[in-house]
Write a protein that binds this DNA or RNA. Structure first.
Lengths: 209, 209
DNA sequence: GAAAGAACTTACTCCCAGTAAGTTACTCGG
DNA sequence: CCGAGTAACTTACTGGGAGTAAGTTCTTTC
């Protein structure tokens, strides 16, 4: 009865640094995932954790720092999932398949992780992002049209497959363009186009029948 | 000599709306391209054009609106370049090649356009963007390793080609994941993995020799 | 040469990243 | 049990950038 701390709300307010850091990181991952980088304010994160903003700054330095910490943790998880699947496979062909499955399955099971990592995580939310998507869609449509023209007219084609191929080609070319720019403009345009052509042309045969 | 307006700086200050809009759009495209979406302030754009900020708001409504307008113009140019190349080709195989060349060449010749459209345009600048790239690089390395393992050991392999393939696969899977999420989680993970596998596996034969 | 409207500006508001300086709770040696 | 030391935490601010209300000046047109 003489205990000093047992009337109302005996909630532990102070926690040690490691525990608090984890709490903050969890909240941040959630909020970044929901609202994107831009849409997330440090005040929101602080309020969610029930802590004041400067504490977050003390632990993570900046908004970028906090985002980066989320990213790091997720990256490790995703990379592990995929590498494990690949390394467990008995031959290269199955390794490739297993890698794809692991990749898509991970992002399927961690939709929020996904947003933070690649999708909206760093994109501006709203109309600008939507417009960028429209640009992509136009190319996807163009590519899908080309693929369709190249299929035998008599056989019913699998529209899912066409979409998958078109999205893949669009994603691949976009990434190659970024990479090439950062790489100082090499390899040459022709080298890129030729290699892509080789990689995809024969694959398209499979879909042809 | 009695003319009222010919001493110093007879610069025309007012211009009609269409001309001013174009001026603003040009400046915005340049600045967005240089500094990214986040790094660009409306005050910067206004100062560059030599105009006050509310005028830009009157014409474009918001920062997103201005960005969107830049995007629209560029999209039309890029899409035209690629469609023209594709449609001018005599057969599907050459159309595919021509399309790739047109895509990479356009982005080569308009590096700033490029930034606005896809690359840094909407990404957060600084350490966060860098970290996201590191995540990608890890996957690219993993894929490159797999490709290398699958090449005949005796033949010297073309490292550029390996990088191109690895970047392509990484870009394709990333895009597919975004698309699938927005598409409500279909098609299934297995369908995606199988189609990708078919598309790429035979293409990798070409590189094998 | 005045009316009308388009082109343009000054001077704000609010929100959010980041910070300076201080306060409170825990802990450990005596 | 108590005070000194430190880790955990807060209040109260600055600065910068998006967006706006309410005007002011130029230019065209009758």
């Amino acid at each position: 009865m003489t205990s000093t701390t047992d009337d109302v709300v005996p909630v532990k307010r102070r926690r040690d640094r490691a525990a608090r850091e984890r709490e903050i990181l969890d909240a941040a991952e959630q909020i970044f995932g929901d609202r994107g980088y831009q849409g997330t304010s440090m005040d929101d994160v602080a309020a969610t954790v029930g802590v004041s903003k400067p504490l977050i700054y003390q632990y993570y330095g900046s908004k970028d720092g906090l985002f980066l910490a989320c990213l790091s943790r997720l990256r490790a998880q995703l990379l592990d999932a995929v590498s494990d699947a690949v390394l467990a496979a008995p031959d290269p062909e199955q390794a490739m398949y297993a890698g794809f499955v692991a990749w898509f399955a991970f992002l399927d099971e961690h939709p929020r992780a996904w947003s933070v990592l690649v999708d909206e995580g760093m994109l501006a939310a709203g109309p600008a992002a939507q417009a960028a998507d429209e640009v992509r869609d136009e190319f996807v449509d163009l590519i899908a049209m080309m693929v369709r023209l190249n299929l035998p007219a008599d056989r019913p084609h699998d529209e899912d497959e066409i979409q998958i191929v078109a999205q893949s080609v669009s994603g691949a070319t976009e990434r190659l363009a970024v990479w090439r720019t950062r790489n100082g403009g090499t390899p040459s345009v022709e080298k890129l186009a030729t290699t892509l052509q080789e990689l995809l042309w024969r694959g398209l045969d499979s879909l042809r029948g």
